[in-house]
Design a protein around this nucleic acid. Structure first.
Ligand SMILES: NC(=O)c1ccc[n+]([C@@H]2O[C@H](COP(=O)([O-])OP(=O)(O)OC[C@H]3O[C@@H](n4cnc5c(N)ncnc54)[C@H](O)[C@@H]3O)[C@@H](O)[C@H]2O)c1
Ligand SMILES: NC(=O)c1ccc[n+]([C@@H]2O[C@H](COP(=O)([O-])OP(=O)(O)OC[C@H]3O[C@@H](n4cnc5c(N)ncnc54)[C@H](O)[C@@H]3O)[C@@H](O)[C@H]2O)c1
Lengths: 217, 217
DNA sequence: TTACAATAAAGAAAATTTTCTTTAAATAAT
DNA sequence: ATTATTTAAAGAAAATTTTCTTTATTGTAA
């Protein structure tokens, strides 16, 4: 591997920073559309409700330098962010469980801007096998083992029911998958070198409901 | 309002704790099924990869006390968590934008366990209006203003395209919505008393891709 | 040029969250 | 009963993240 990067990026970025970066990227793409060539950290902070020094620190991880009195070069910053996040590469993925959520993810066109490319989806439901959603074919689950041999896919998107999540995850790992984007509520246990990214919507529900409840006291 | 709570809960719980609580709840429901009447913090921690003292501190926000040598009462803990998170109430919501993601959320049955009840969905697409997904009717967007007058719905789920998110959010606020669960990438600006819960999937993509990239260096 | 204002960068401080330590309580075994 | 062991609770320490300060740089305008 050992890819060359255009900017001197931070080797390790804090997770809260990482989570904010796509927000900057989305905002910057909008202002670029409006023809803004340079933008300052305080301006970004005002729009996104963030402390200006926080913005400076966050953007520093990309290695891009801003100029005092001018700000950052919009175009340069966008590219550095995409580069840093890996959004400008093609990150190939398999999806398992083409149900409600799986279908939505397959149909989601903006994945391209994340550099995410779902090559194929797999399901056990006969009714779904053979269908195409968002240009992605739904294949028989067993085909996963054949296909993964030929392709070198590193990312698995897990949108099966909770109770099969563990076994499907293990299958994915046996197929050479290195990172699993887990949308199920199940806690999946895998060898520690496998990256498991849990994306629990109920966490957000918890925060929302609690804040709503706190507010109405 | 002023509901009585069975346990002396912490008035303010840290957000990381709040986000972990649904995970405990899901796990506890599983072990309850298996007939486990009591469970200790170290056991929970081992299963969920969390520090045992972290578990104790997290669960302490619910006000439930565990007994040394025995652990927590599974049943009591589940109920305290549901109570604390507001999952055992009926939290009524409107959904706007019955597209890919909106449809998935409408079809999602587990929302019940979060106490979330989507009363109706609204869309501008003629083709979608009149349809029913997961027992939820898709109504003409303008009906939102009529319906909200009669019902006292506090939560709005926002799954429209990004470019209309701001205006739809403002409409929701004008209809009396107090909290918005925002699934779009757009940053929406509303009066500060309105709770906006952003749920950005690209944040997770960012963390996943970066971790994957870091790993392969 | 020269002073002035805006801003990024770097470092310090504060706040928050997690982990570690100690203490006390409750059960089980002797 | 008594002792030993497990465990929750409470507090202290460490780590992390955010916010605040200071400094230095750059461009603008007098
Ligand atoms: N629908 C939502 O909006 C939503 C929201 C948050 C989380 N989730 C989570 O996402 C997961 C999927 O939810 P859903 O609503 O899409 O469920 P779903 O039932 O619609 O979809 C699950 C799909 O997985 C397939 N499947 C079942 N067993 C399989 C196996 N062994 N191998 C491969 N495929 C298999 C099913 O045929 C089905 O198509 C669940 O864990 C759920 O908790 C869903
Ligand atoms: N699909 C996914 O998996 C996914 C994942 C992450 C985030 N998102 C975000 O969720 C949002 C929706 O994505 P999607 O894929 O479901 O898009 P979509 O186009 O399938 O759905 C959007 C729906 O909103 C409706 N709509 C448009 N304008 C409206 C208005 N003014 N009022 C009411 N309804 C209106 C459309 O008719 C459509 O039915 C986007 O912001 C997207 O970024 C989607």
């Amino acid at each position: 591997m050992n890819e060359k990067r255009k900017y001197k990026t931070k080797s390790h970025a804090p997770e809260p920073t990482l989570k904010r970066l796509p927000g900057y990227l989305y905002f910057l793409e909008q202002v670029k559309e409006e023809g803004v060539l340079n933008i300052s950290a305080p301006t970004i902070g005002k729009e996104l409700d963030l402390d200006p020094t926080q913005v400076v620190k966050d953007l520093a991880v990309t290695g891009v330098k801003g100029k005092p009195r001018v700000g950052y070069n919009t175009y340069e910053l966008i590219h550095a962010l995409e580069d840093f996040l890996g959004f400008n590469k093609v990150n190939e993925a398999f999806l398992v469980g083409a149900g409600n959520l799986g279908s939505a993810l397959m149909a989601y066109q903006e994945h391209q801007s994340l550099g995410l490319k779902i090559l194929a989806a797999f399901d056990v439901d006969e009714a779904k096998i053979g269908q195409t959603i968002g240009g992605i074919h739904i294949l028989e689950y067993n085909k996963l083992f054949h296909l993964s041999g030929r392709l070198n896919v590193k990312i698995g998107i897990l949108t099966t029911p909770n109770h099969v999540a563990q076994e499907v995850a293990e299958d994915l790992v046996n197929c050479g998958i290195k990172a699993i984007w887990n949308f199920t509520s199940a806690k999946i246990n895998l060898p520690k070198e496998i990256i498991v990214q849990n994306t629990s919507m109920s966490s957000y529900a918890a925060v929302l409901l609690r804040r709503l409840n706190d507010a109405s006291l």
